[in-house]
Computed example of a mutant assay.
Amino acid sequence: MKHEWLERDNIVRRKGISVDEFVLGFETPNKPILLEGCLDKWPALKKWDRDYLVEVCGDNRFAVGPAQMTLTDYFVYSDQAQEERPLYLFDPKFANKVPQLGQDRLRSSVGSGSSFHIDPNSTSAWNAVVKGSKKWVLFPPDVVPPRVYPSSDGAEVSCHVSIT
């Protein structure tokens, strides 16, 4: 691996970038970027906390790995999770189950994460950290990370241990 890949913060950070600049400088050449300030005016930043989300979500059950859990149960689980690959709350029908939240989507909570994977249909990820911090490790498209084994067509990835 190249030394610069291992540097802590080597992804371009930009605030107030135009759509054209984003498409030409990052989307078209397939380069990662950290967009700053995108959530500054998002009402959920002030409104969303555990109590509010638990109240709004009520008894709705959400996809958490292979299981279905209420948000209350997920918070209990995530507070105690110590396994290397904790379950990740990701429910594509989240907004349908909780219309009050509209287009807002809850992707994860404390202690969540995912192993190496390829997003379906070659999608690009848009992630936002509402509270706390999140760590991403990105590799160039032509580099297979250590101990990661892609299928011959590149559609699936298996990994026996995490990057940590």
Results as ranks from 00 to 15, higher is better:
A44S: 06
A44F: 10
F94E: 12
Q82T: 13
A81I: 04
D40C: 03
S78Y: 04
D59K: 06
F90N: 09
F90A: 11
R61L: 00
L71D: 00
K97G: 08
D40Q: 12
G65D: 00
D91W: 07
L87H: 12
P86K: 01
D79F: 01
V56H: 04
R50W: 14
E84A: 15
A63S: 07
F75C: 15
S78R: 10
K47Y: 14
K41H: 09
R61H: 01
Q82P: 03
Y77Q: 07
Q68P: 00
A67K: 05
F90P: 02
D40F: 06
V76M: 05
L89H: 11
D40V: 11
L53Y: 05
K97S: 11
Y74H: 14
V64C: 08
D49H: 12
T72Q: 10
W42I: 14
F94Y: 13
N60W: 00
Q68C: 02
V56T: 12
W42Q: 06
Y52K: 06
A67N: 11
D51V: 04
Q68L: 06
Q80G: 04
K97N: 06
F75H: 12
P92N: 13
C57D: 05
N60E: 11
V98W: 03
A95L: 04
P66Q: 13
G65I: 02
D73Q: 04
F62C: 03
N96Q: 07
K97I: 05
L87T: 04
F94W: 09
K93H: 13
M69S: 05
Y88I: 03
Q82R: 10
A67H: 05
L89R: 08
D91R: 02
R61S: 01
K97C: 07
L45G: 09
K93P: 03
G65V: 02
T72W: 00
R85D: 07
K41T: 14
P86C: 08
R85W: 07
A44M: 06
W42N: 15
A44L: 05
D51C: 04
V56C: 05
F94H: 09
R50E: 15
N96R: 06
L71Y: 01
Q68D: 09
Q80S: 10
E55A: 15
R61E: 02
Y88M: 01
M69D: 01
Q68H: 06
R61Q: 07
E55G: 13
T70G: 00
P92L: 12
W48F: 15
V98S: 11
A63M: 02
F90H: 12
P43Q: 11
L89I: 13
S78M: 07
T72S: 15
Q82V: 05
L53H: 11
